[in-house]
């Protein structure tokens, strides 16, 4: 997705290109040689696409449609058990949710959490990518190995490990902190104060996401023409200026992409909190995803849960549209 673009500098000659779409604007200037090189192929493409499309319709669209329907009903446990058709309530679920102060508190918290995580992830990733360029081969190999290992960790495993690291009684974090003179963290509970608890959650999230950002940005940085940078240095530009005027413009599309993706992922953080709080999340730790789950499975109002989920989807839709436009601009979707 991002990477073929990365590796497609104008210098590459633009040899392999996508066929021109019959609709929509042609790909931007990157060079679309060979007009009409795409084949219509008669029925073949439709036959090829059909199985995949049917599968996606069954597993994505039908549930989505059901979600939509349920959010206009009052679907409760009783209906799940008996199979009775629930009552239609119109927009009641949505008005209930939107007039609930707790919802707005959760929504605000979700946004703040997302912003903090995205900033740390993207900022940290960029920093790591920049220093990776300049470190010696051995160190870079070590860093790459560490990044890839962290990247590969399943979320369930990463969460278990961080739970153990911050365990109040025998977690190494408390043990090490207590070694500092005058500090006693024995028995300190990281989930007592909500902000500390979220700090631990953010640590898992960022730790798991930084490798992707760092590695992708590092790949992008290798695309920066060396000559340009050298020329800028010769012209007497400082490191910061070179970055701003030479390096950043080149990596900007990738930077925007990883930021957008991080926004979407961090908005949807669910499993890390769910597992950290032992599958039973208290209201102080609710983000939109958790809130929706709790409404559906703890309060047994599936309709309220789906209403919150739909509101989340709508909030994210803005980001998704932005993401799509970015891709189209660069000619990935034509």
């Amino acid at each position: 997705m991002s990477v073929p673009t990365l590796d497609r500098p104008p210098a590459a000659g633009g040899e392999p290109q996508e066929p021109d779409g019959p609709d929509g604007p042609a790909a931007p200037a990157a060079g679309t040689p060979g007009q009409g090189r795409g084949h219509r192929g008669g029925m073949l493409p439709y036959l090829l696409v059909l199985p995949g499309l049917l599968a996606i319709a069954a597993v994505y669209f039908y549930p989505l449609y059901r979600t939509l329907v349920m959010s206009f009903q009052d679907y409760r446990r009783r209906h799940l058990w008996t199979g009775d058709t629930p009552d239609w309530v119109g927009f009641e679920q949505f008005t209930n949710v939107l007039t609930d102060a707790h919802f707005w508190a959760v929504a605000t918290r979700t946004v703040v959490f997302m912003v903090v995580c995205v900033t740390l992830t993207v900022g940290g990733g960029l920093l790591i990518a920049l220093i990776m360029q300049r470190m010696s081969l051995v160190v870079r190999l070590m860093v790459t190995a560490a990044l890839v290992t962290a990247w590969a960790m399943p979320i369930v495993v990463a969460t278990s490990v961080f739970r153990w690291l911050t365990d109040s009684e025998y977690g190494i974090v408390n043990i090490l902190l207590s070694k500092l003179p005058g500090v006693d963290f024995r028995g300190h509970n990281w989930f007592m104060e909500t902000w500390q608890g979220f700090a631990v959650v953010a640590a898992v999230v960022v730790w798991g996401a930084v490798p992707f950002v760092a590695v992708t940005l590092y790949a992008a940085l290798t695309q920066v023409p060396k000559e340009l940078e050298e020329a800028a240095h010769l012209d007497g530009a400082g490191g910061r200026q070179v970055f701003r005027h030479v390096v950043f413009p080149v990596i900007k599309p990738v930077f925007v992409l990883v930021t957008t993706l991080s926004v979407i992922w961090d908005f949807n953080v669910f499993l890390q909190i769910f597992l950290m709080r032992g599958n039973n999340v208290e209201p102080q730790y609710e983000l939109l995803g958790i809130y929706s789950y709790n409404l559906a499975f703890q309060s047994q109002s599936f309709s309220q849960g789906t209403a919150v989920a739909l509101i989340t989807v709508l909030l994210l839709a803005g980001v998704a549209v932005y993401y799509l436009r970015q891709m189209m601009k660069r000619g990935e979707v034509e």
Partner: peptide, 18 residues
């Protein structure tokens, strides 16, 4: 692209029912 952005949670209950 868009289906990847759907929160999986939003579809858990209907998927389960289906």
């Amino acid at each position: 692209v868009l289906v990847q952005l759907l929160p999986p949670l939003a579809m858990l209950i209907p998927l389960y029912l289906q």
